[in-house]
Design a protein around this nucleic acid. Structure first.
Length: 457
RNA sequence: GCCGCUAUCGUCUAGGGGACUAGGACGCUGGCUUCUCAUGCCAGAAACCGGGGUUCGAAUCCCCGUAGCGGUACCA
């Protein structure tokens, strides 16, 4: 990309949730625009009049906002641009670059059967009202897409039909509309999915017929699911919304998505968004489709989680679980931060600090042995005298108990863990006790002892 | 069918004629650390789609296959 002031746009289809593929396209546009110091225009594609709804658009905007992908202009909707399209259409009809043709899909098929599969359909002009408008495509030569990622890609003109640019009622079709829109909006660089590559010659032909200069194009490889098929609902988290619900961090998602189809020459994996902006170059994007692998996202997310400042971490957890980021939650987060890879994993680790212990029969059976009651009693006695009731002093009184009973530490700590949390998995036992507080801890331990007495007599 | 794109460990990728005994990361396996679960650290297994050509030399360039994907709508 070069030139004074690049102008890019991203144009998600308002089909509901923002698909991961669409999100990555948005991210690449955003990175490229930021890297080049250009402007980013958000446009919602809604030429499909049937489907577009306010609600769907709101979902897209919500997802982009969560990803923290801001834009310089927009959202610009294509609604209301019908006049501009009509003008352009009239211009083409006037100049003879386009014509009305009453042929139906069947007619076109028949024409091809007669003229061979390699030939694009050529119709005959008619004045008949209600006939669709087709663009004249040359029989000779080729249309070349100068792609920033793939280099020049040549398409023989003869293989394209005189394609329909407007329906019988004069409403325009995508390849016409998008070309006109790009030109009118002054878009200099179009970064979009691979699935548009074969459409690009059509848009180039429209632009040329209208006398507009073509933007630069970059066609991104598609994103596939773990089975190699196009990413869809059945691949788990397929949308930005689902990623958010799964407890991923926007910064981690941005980092991971940037790496799907692009890498640095020195193999840097973990990058801040600032670094991403600085290093990202659209021409360095790879050509092959990538598979979305949630495992690596999880790992990356865990790294971001662990490196977060505690207050920020607490705020993120609070937002995810719908609680206030109070001092207690902060204390809980502090002892759990090392252990979770996603925001969703935090609550199960710390809920015992806010609610009664969960009833996990399996954990109880696995951990509680005949000598557990005796050990818990000794622990309770020790905890009663700890001053202050903090992690280090608690450790100082509990650790010697294991020696005294000549057992491995886990034999003592695990029953305590189950007694206070109900589960066999929690943050460090000393820290957990400290945050829980002496009174609650002792109360839960004594309850466990009673239950043990009932079990083991 | 026709037009086009793509092809390096399971996955994301580095590498663009000799530095390749093909590097890194996730995941996996084993070990160490350890109160659980994680983290952290160490080690290991694991790839150039196939066939031709060009060249002294090919993962890298060319051709042909094969496979996957996209387009081929009065969809976007």
């Amino acid at each position: 990309m070069n030139g004074a002031s690049p102008r890019l746009r991203f144009a998600p289809s308002p089909t509901g949730a923002l698909h991961i593929g669409g999100a990555r396209t948005a991210l690449y546009n955003w990175l490229a625009a930021r890297h080049e110091g250009g402007k980013l225009v958000l446009r919602i594609e809604d030429t499909d009049r049937e489907r577009s709804t306010e609600e769907n658009v709101a979902q897209i905007l919500d997802a982009l906002e969560w990803l923290e992908l801001d834009w310089d202009e927009g959202p610009i909707s294509q609604a209301g641009r019908a006049e501009r399209h009509a003008d352009a259409l009239a211009q083409l009809l006037e100049s003879g670059a386009a014509y009305r043709d009453s042929a139906t899909a069947k007619d076109v098929e028949a024409w091809k059967a007669e003229h061979g599969a390699g030939r694009g359909y050529r119709g005959t002009a008619t004045e008949e009202p209600g006939a669709a408008v087709r663009l004249r495509v040359p029989d000779e030569g080729e249309t070349v897409v100068e792609d920033l990622i793939r280099g020049p890609v040549a398409f023989p003109n003869a293989s394209y039909d005189d394609f329909v640019i407007a329906r019988g009622d004069d409403t325009v079709l995508y390849n016409f509309a998008v070309a006109v829109d790009d030109a009118e909006m002054g878009i200099t660089d179009v970064v979009r999915g691979d699935d548009h590559l074969s459409n690009t010659p059509k848009q180039l032909l429209v632009l040329e017929a209208l006398g507009f200069e073509a933007p630069r194009y970059a066609h991104l490889p598609l994103l596939h699911g773990p089975d190699g098929k196009k990413l869809s609902k059945r691949h788990g988290a397929a949308s930005v919304q689902e990623l958010r619900e799964s407890g991923y961090l926007p910064a981690a998602v941005r980092n991971y998505m940037a790496l799907l189809g692009w890498g640095t020459d020195d193999d840097t994996t973990l990058m801040s968004t600032e670094e991403l902006v600085r290093r990202f170059r659209i021409a360095d994007v790879g050509k092959a489709a990538a598979i979305f692998d949630e495992k690596k996202l999880r790992w990356l997310n865990g790294r971001f989680m662990r490196e977060m400042p505690l207050d920020q971490y607490t705020a993120a957890v609070a937002a995810h679980v719908g609680r206030d980021p109070d001092a207690r939650l902060r204390a809980a987060c502090e002892i759990a931060q090392e252990k979770a890879q996603t925001l969703a994993e935090v609550w199960p680790l710390i809920r015992f600090l806010f609610e009664e212990p969960v009833d996990d029969e399996k954990a109880w059976k696995k951990v509680m042995k005949e000598d557990s009651a005796e050990l818990l009693e000794a622990a309770a006695v020790a905890l009663e005298g700890v001053e202050p009731f903090e992690a280090a002093p608690i450790e100082a009184v509990l650790a010697p108990l294991a020696d005294r009973f000549e057992i491995k530490p886990g034999r003592l700590y695990q029953p305590i863990r189950v007694a206070i949390s109900g589960t066999s998995v929690s943050p460090g036992i000393f820290e957990s006790l400290a945050v829980l507080g002496r009174e609650t801890a002792l109360e839960r331990i004594s309850r466990a002892i009673s239950r043990l007495r009932g079990t083991f007599g």
